[in-house]
Write a protein that binds this DNA or RNA. Structure first.
Length: 208
DNA sequence: TAAACGATTAGCT
DNA sequence: GCTAATCGTTTAT
């Protein structure tokens, strides 16, 4: 998997415009990603060495690192660079392509085996943008589960990254939602696309 | 053992 | 703009 055997800050912009697809579910064109570095990046889960949670980040490139965020959301990363480095790209959003029925279904019926006291978050997709805009919604739309953690892209995970030759214009800004390392310009997104968090603002002037 | 903390989102003020 | 929801990992006693 040569594509991912490079530093995550090189892989990340190359992922913009690629198709992320889950077999039997659907997917779309990647619009927003963030790179997490193995060195000098305090926001990276691998920053303090391997732990049971981040073990997949130290595995082979081209595998997925899936973890639970805020006890609520399942976030998807793809491991990059060399094995044991601890480098990955967080997939933050895609623009749906093809049949979105299954994606909406997943968003509407997200994991509720127990009757909630109050309305569960994320249980009512409203418009097209809310379908897959943001890493939590994306994971929900694709029906990702923690069991996918560590599996390689391809048959094993049912997750595919497909290059169909599209080369969009890309902007680079600081990352979102982190409290450390927030000055590093490691967030990449497709310019002029509505499926980008924080208002899809053009490059420059955005704080991330 | 206990407490705090998230690579977030939705709903309400 | 503010905060509940929700739980495994991390950090502090």
């Amino acid at each position: 998997m040569d594509f991912f055997a490079r530093p995550s800050e090189e892989v990340a912009p190359d992922l913009i415009g690629k198709i992320l697809w889950r077999w039997g579910v659907g997917g779309g064109r990647l619009t927003e990603v963030e790179a997490y570095l193995p060195q000098n990046d305090p926001a990276c889960h691998a920053a303090r060495g391997p732990t049971p949670r981040n073990a997949a980040m130290f595995g082979p490139p081209g595998c997925v690192y899936v973890y639970l965020s805020y006890g609520v959301h399942v976030l998807l990363n793809v491991v990059c660079d060399q094995e044991s480095f601890g480098s990955a790209v967080l997939i933050r959003a895609f623009e749906p392509v093809g049949d979105t029925a299954r994606l909406f279904q997943n968003r509407a019926s997200h994991g509720r085996s127990v009757e909630p006291r109050k309305r569960a978050p994320l249980d009512r997709p409203t418009d097209g943008r809310s379908l897959s805009l943001g890493p939590g919604r994306l994971g929900q739309a694709l029906g990702l589960r923690l069991a996918l953690n560590g599996l390689p892209l391809g048959e094993a995970s049912g997750l595919y990254i497909i290059d169909d030759g599209v080369s969009p214009e890309i902007a680079r800004t600081t990352r979102v939602g982190i409290s450390r390392g927030d000055h590093l310009p490691l967030r990449f997104y497709m310019t002029g696309n509505a499926y980008v968090t924080h208002g899809a603002r053009p490059a420059g002037g955005e704080r991330g």
